[in-house]
Amino acid sequence: HNLTITQGKLFFHYNPKLCLSEIHKMEEVSGTKGRQERNDIALKTNGDQASCENELLKFSYIRTSFDKILLRWEPYWPPDFRDLLGFMLFYKEAPYQNVTEFDGQDACGSNSWTVVDIDPPLRSNDPKSQNHPGWLMRGLKPWTQYAIFVKTLVTFSDERRTYGAKSDIIYVQTDATNPSVPLDPISVSNSSSQIILKWKPPSDPNGNITHYLVFWERQAEDSELFELDYCLKGLKLPSRTWSPPFESEDSQKHNQSEYEDSAGECCSCPKTDSQILKELEESSFRKTFEDYLHNVVFVPRKTSSGTGAEDPRPSRKRRSLGDVGNVTVAVPTVAAFPNTSSTSVPTSPEEHRPFEKVVNKESLVISGLRHFTGYRIELQACNQDTPEERCSVAAYVSARTMPEAKADDIVGPVTHEIFENNVVHLMWQEPKEPNGLIVLYEVSYRRYGDEELHLCVSRKHFALERGCRLRGLSPGNYSVRIRATSLAGNGSWTEPTYFYVTDYLDVPSNIA
C-alpha cells in the first residue's frame, strides 16, 4: 500500500525493539523526510534493546553428524571492536523451508527459537588472519532439518551509529543413524509349514526405512522333555500350542467401542483428552525405555581390526524358502538304536541362519518350516543398504507352526516275539517326523474274553527296548493296539495285532 503524509511529521519514542533503520525507511515511504526535528525521533529510546544489523554474515563451514552440527561463519568486528559482546545463534526444527525470524513471537518477546549466546573469538592483530567464530550444536535429532541463523550482539553506541551483522536463515539436516526397533511384532501360524509375521514401523526411523531383515531359527525343545518319565503317576503330560491366527481386521481397528449394538453396526467412541494424553505418555515412556535398553543392555560386537582377528559373527547367506525346513542338525536320541526319531534339535552355532529381506511392506510369510516346531524370529529395521547396512537392534518374537495331521501315527506293522515265561516283546517304529517329539506310547492289549488293559511306555523305555515287553501273560489269544502321544496330543491307534500265548508248562520236552 502507498502511504503519503502531505502535512505533519513523524514522532517515535520509547520503541526499544524498533531499529532506527526501520524508522528511516518509514520517513522515505511516507514522504516526511526532512520535516522531523532532532528530538522527534529519539536516538536513545528507539532500538536500544534490539540488534540492528546492516551487514550480512556468511557461514564459512558446515559439518553434520547424526546428532551434531558444527558451524563456522566469517569474522565480524565493528569499528570499535570492544562493542562486540558476542553472537546469538538461533535454531529450531523446520520440516519445511518457510521459516521466518519472527515465527511464534508474542507480545512478551518470546519466540519459538532456541538461542545460544556465543563469546567472540580472540581478536588477531592481523586483519587478514582473524579467527572464524563458530559453535557445535549438540543433542539434535537424527535425520531432522533445522533452520539456523546467527547475528551479532553489540553494545549501545553513544554516537548512535547503527552497526551489526546478521546471516540469512539456512537449512541444515542432520545425518541418518540406526533406527529404533520395529514396533509390535506379531507372529502367527496359518499352516503346519508357515508363519505369518506382521509389525509396525519404528517410532524413530532416523532416516528413510529402506528394508527390513527377518531372521528365523528353529528352537530346540526343553531338555526336561527328553529326561522326564511322563508315565509316572502324578506327572502331567506336557503340551505345546501353536500360535493362533490373526483376529479379523475389524476387531483390530483402534479407537473402536468394545460393545456392539445388537441391531447392527455401531460407531466408534472418540477417545477423551485424558485417554489420548495417557497414550502419549505411555508411548514416550516406551521410547525412553527402549533407548535405555539399547544403550545399557546391548553391547556392540567388536569388529575385526587390522591384526587379522576374525569377526566372530557368522556370515549372512541367503537361502531359498524351500530350504528352511531342514535348518537344524538332527541327532538321534540314543545312538545305539537307529530307529528312534531325530527330534532332539541342538543347533550348531556355526550354522548360517536363513533370512529374508523385506522391502516396502511390514509383513512376511515364512514358508518351508517344520510342522509343530518353535521358531525364534528376529526382526531388524534398516535405513541404508549400501555401502553397508545400517540397521536397528533386533526385536524378537516366537511362534510355533501348526501340527501336521497323521504325523504322530505309527507307520509300519507292530511285530512281536514270544519268549519263555510268557513274555512277549512288542516292537514298532517311532514316527519319523512327529509333531514336536514323542513323549510316550500307549499300549492297549486284551486277552479274548477279558477286559482291555493299558500300559504306558516312556520315551526312554522305548529307546532301550525298541518297544516294550509284556510279562506274566496268561495263555490265550491276544490283540494289541499302540498309539503315540506327542507334544500336540495323541496320534491314531494302530491296526490290531494278534498273537497267541501258550502255557509254557505244557511245552513238550526233548528229553527222552
Rank of each mutant, 00 (worst) to 15 (best):
L235W: 08
D385Q: 06
S284I: 01
G308T: 11
E247S: 11
P434C: 07
S268Y: 04
S341P: 07
E442F: 05
E290S: 02
N206M: 07
G306L: 14
S274V: 08
F419L: 09
E265L: 09
F499T: 01
V297E: 02
L379K: 00
S315A: 14
A484Q: 04
R240H: 09
N383Y: 02
T288H: 03
V424C: 11
P245G: 07
V214I: 12
T347I: 08
P413T: 08
E362I: 15
I438S: 04
L437D: 10
H461V: 11
P338S: 09
W493L: 06
R313D: 15
Y498D: 14
T415M: 15
I482P: 00
K236R: 13
Q219A: 11
S262Y: 10
E217H: 07
F215L: 10
S398H: 03
E362P: 08
T485W: 13
P387A: 12
Y504L: 09
H416L: 09
E281Q: 12
P205K: 02
T303Q: 08
T494Q: 03
T347A: 07
T502L: 12
H461C: 12
E389I: 11
D385L: 08
E362Y: 09
Q275I: 03
R318K: 10
T303E: 11
D409P: 05
G306I: 10
S320N: 05
T333P: 12
E420S: 03
L440N: 08
L369H: 03
P332E: 10
G476S: 02
S248V: 10
T485Y: 14
S341C: 08
M402K: 12
D311Q: 14
D229T: 09
G472W: 07
S341K: 13
D261V: 15
S251A: 05
T497H: 05
A335L: 13
F246Y: 10
S367H: 04
D408V: 03
I366T: 03
T340G: 04
P403R: 04
V334K: 12
L237S: 06
F246I: 06
Y292P: 01
D222F: 06
L440D: 05
N206H: 09
A407L: 12
R447M: 04
L213P: 01
S398A: 07
E495T: 15
G374T: 05
S268G: 10
M402F: 02
A484G: 12
S367E: 12
L369A: 10
T386N: 15
V443P: 01
D408N: 13
N326K: 15
D323Y: 14
E221K: 14
L228A: 03
T288E: 04
E433W: 11
R469E: 05
Y441A: 01
V359Q: 11
S363L: 11
A394T: 08
L369P: 02
F462L: 06
